[in-house]
């Protein structure tokens, strides 16, 4: 395994994530700007997918990048910056989702109708586009059932038994599907991890 996966570089591709993190740790706000340009759509997109509204997704995005600025916990030995940012974004978003009162759920249902929400990515982000394409192709190789359980688990943070209940499917089947789905994805995307 390569020590770090390739980064989703934009036009500012001359600097690796590690170079930018080095500058960031020397108090360089411009490095934060470059990392924002590289990862903000992913962070914001994930928060929006979980929470279903732009206002909360905006708050999470701000929290995540400011946490990075404050050097909260990223250790390059433990994985890529992408992994760190997505994990933090996902867990904070799911926490926020769970903290909502019942009264807000109706609003979330309306605002959370996130269907086919992708539009063409800007040309300057070619390698993000390529990675997105690869991930979509890899997901397309999963069965509908496998993809469904994996996405519910990832984006909604439901436990396997909650998923089993929602889909009216035996718990063992749900577990097998989600694990097989992840293993297949890893196999397909091995060049990227």
């Amino acid at each position: 395994m390569a020590p770090h996966p390739p980064t989703p570089e934009s036009t500012d591709s001359s600097q690796s994530d590690q170079d930018l993190l080095h500058d960031l740790r020397n108090g360089r706000v411009d490095a934060l700007g470059k990392l924002y340009d590289r990862y903000s759509k992913l962070v914001y997109g994930l928060a929006f997918r979980v929470l279903g509204n732009s206002e909360e997704a905006e708050d999470i995005t701000q929290e995540v990048f400011l946490a990075l600025w404050r050097r909260d916990g990223y250790d390059p030995k433990r994985g890529s910056l992408n992994n760190f940012l997505m994990t933090m974004t996902r867990s904070r978003s799911i926490d926020k989702l769970r903290s909502r009162g019942a009264g807000l759920r109706a609003l979330q249902r309306i605002q959370g109708t996130v269907r086919s929400e992708w539009t063409a990515p800007p040309l300057e982000q070619v390698s993000i586009q390529e990675r997105s394409q690869r991930v979509r192709e890899a997901l397309a190789q999963l069965s509908d059932n496998e993809r469904q359980v994996l996405e519910i688990a990832y984006y909604e943070g439901l436990s396997q038994s909650e998923i089993a209940k929602r889909l009216d499917t035996p718990l063992g089947t749900v577990k097998t599907r989600s694990r097989q789905a992840l293993l297949k994805l890893r196999q397909t995307l091995q060049d990227y991890i």
């Binding site: 395994m1 996966p5 989703p8 903000s40 759509k41 992913l42 962070v43 914001y44 997109g45 994930l46 929006f48 997918r49 732009s54 997704a57 905006e58 995005t61 433990r78 994985g79 890529s80 992408n82 992994n83 997505m86 994990t87 974004t89 929400e117 992708w118 539009t119 063409a120 990515p121 993000i128 586009q129 990675r131 997105s132 690869r134 991930v135 979509r136 997901l139 994996l150 996405e151 990832y154 984006y155 992840l182 293993l183 994805l185 890893r186 995307l189 091995q190 990227y192 991890i193």
Partner: peptide, 21 residues
Amino acid sequence: VTQLQETLALLPYDLADREPP
């Protein structure tokens, strides 16, 4: 384990085109 976590962290690339404000 790290590889599988990295794989999960690629899932949001499926959603990559939502522009922040």
